[in-house]
Nucleic acid binder design. Structure first.
Lengths: 267, 267
DNA sequence: GGAATTTAGACTGTCAACATTTTACTTACT
DNA sequence: AGTAAGTAAAATGTTGACAGTCTAAATTCC
């Protein structure tokens, strides 16, 4: 066996590993329509990689090779590039000129800053919403919280998390500030990454929806201060689930000793 | 003269108009080095269009044709595309699928939301900075304010505006939250566009740097509440220079009557 | 045996031609 | 005349090939 043949096999194994991480068999061609199918594929690619990153099936630092992804999804490298740019916009991947894209590995400071930013922005959103929420909107929010609770009760964690995100986004929407809502979208997209990067293992992953209903009731009473405090406490609770205790020593040590794998699922 | 010839001329005139708006003669080839010259050209393109948009030499709604820009800067359309994507990231241009890019035309609501967001974020930044600013940093900030004042005194408005922006950015930097600093960068980039879009004509454009020094002194005393109030008042003052009084009726009317030019500098 | 240099392979960046969609004009019809 | 369908040009989207850059294995020299 020549060296190039060995290498070829190694590469293919790596691609296979990423393929399984992404849940892609080899070529998932959608309905036979070659019409606007590319845009759909682009969105699907974004969603798949997005979810894989948030689930840590593609751990921070994993290299995302354009050619491999292009082959996996059976699209041109240009499409891959666009998707990677979109992911980079949300800071889920990092684009290094001439050196490819990797899954973002948020630092401890970044994680703290992110939660601080969420407290700032969601605080402002809650303050705003308390003054202008309508009864119909309150009903809508209560439905969301209820659905979330039921999802968790049924053990459907994924659904619960989705509904939890929807709750936060609905609040932003109703606050009526599109700019802040946009920023919050970016923050929400990044939150699971930092949560999973630094979470202590055996802990409940969800926004405690009990806190969600507390926030909602505070909003309903029109007491802005109480509502803002409840939201900030909620986010503080989330942050405190992490172990952001600057245990970088060990991480750095691992890197220094060459024991840290830059591409965990690749050989 | 055939119709196609007439059209050709019209197109060339349009390109010329954009060229002069961008301050580009025909082909500005940098130093003979074909080394990393492309990246430099990409940055220059970004800067030129950026400034042209903020100066309203390219008014909101102006179409930015890829081919025209590619010809003007003597680069490939791919490069143009990347630059347009970067500009879209800051919401200075809008990318409409299959229909090209246009200079963003922020709505009245968007402008108000933008200023509200700035008050929220810069309020948090000031609150944070008041607790942790060092004497050295205070000195640095005082130098910035002083330079800004002198620039205005000499009548160098452009320099003054640049220094004003630097002041806001320096505050964000010193607050130590990279996420909020990043958001503020985006907001600062968009502010001049909405200012110019809705400014009442004869009014002083600058951040009154008197207010800057007031903010700075409040920070220096360590009184967080006063500092935050000063910053919010400063931004409120900026916003109040606009006429955001929902005079959309006239604008909409113009559009409805077909009197509104989508591409102001094109024939 | 270990470190620096060389060299082959892989990957990203760039480009120009091709395909598709939009746009605006012409032409025909009511 | 005004409107609507049809058509040609222009602009955007896509593709595959080529060029430059980085990575890493292999060789050579201490």
């Amino acid at each position: 066996m020549t060296t190039s043949e060995r290498k070829k096999i190694a590469t293919e194994k790596a691609v296979d590993a990423q393929a399984s991480a992404l849940g892609v068999a080899l070529v998932p061609p959608p309905a036979g329509a070659p019409k606007g199918a590319l845009a759909a594929m682009e969105d699907e690619m974004f969603e798949r990689i997005h979810e894989a990153v948030l689930d840590h099936r593609l751990p921070p630092g994993t290299k995302l090779k354009e050619t491999a992804l292009a082959g996996l999804f059976a699209v041109n490298r240009n499409i891959v590039r666009k998707v990677l740019a979109r992911l980079a916009h949300f800071k889920l991947v990092e684009l290094r000129p001439n050196r490819g894209a990797v899954v973002a590995s948020p630092s401890v400071e970044e994680s703290r800053d992110l939660f601080a930013a969420r407290r700032t922005i969601e605080g402002a959103i809650i303050d705003c919403i308390t003054r202008r929420v309508t009864p119909a909107q309150l009903r809508e929010l209560r439905v969301l919280v209820k659905q979330e609770q039921e999802a968790y009760r049924r053990g459907e964690v994924r659904t619960g998390l989705k509904l939890s995100i929807q709750f936060h986004q609905a609040l932003a929407e109703m606050a009526g500030n599109s700019v802040l809502a946009d920023f919050l979208d970016q923050l929400i997209a990044r939150t699971p990454l930092v949560l999973l990067a630094y979470r202590v293992p055996a802990r409940d992953a969800s926004c405690s929806n009990d806190e969600h209903s507390q926030i909602l009731e505070a909003v309903a009473t029109g007491d802005a201060n109480r509502a803002v405090t409840a939201m900030k406490a909620h986010l503080q609770g989330l942050e405190s689930q992490l172990n952001l205790r600057e245990e970088e020593q060990s991480t750095d040590l691992g890197k220094i000793l060459g024991l840290h794998r830059a591409e965990p699922i690749l050989p």
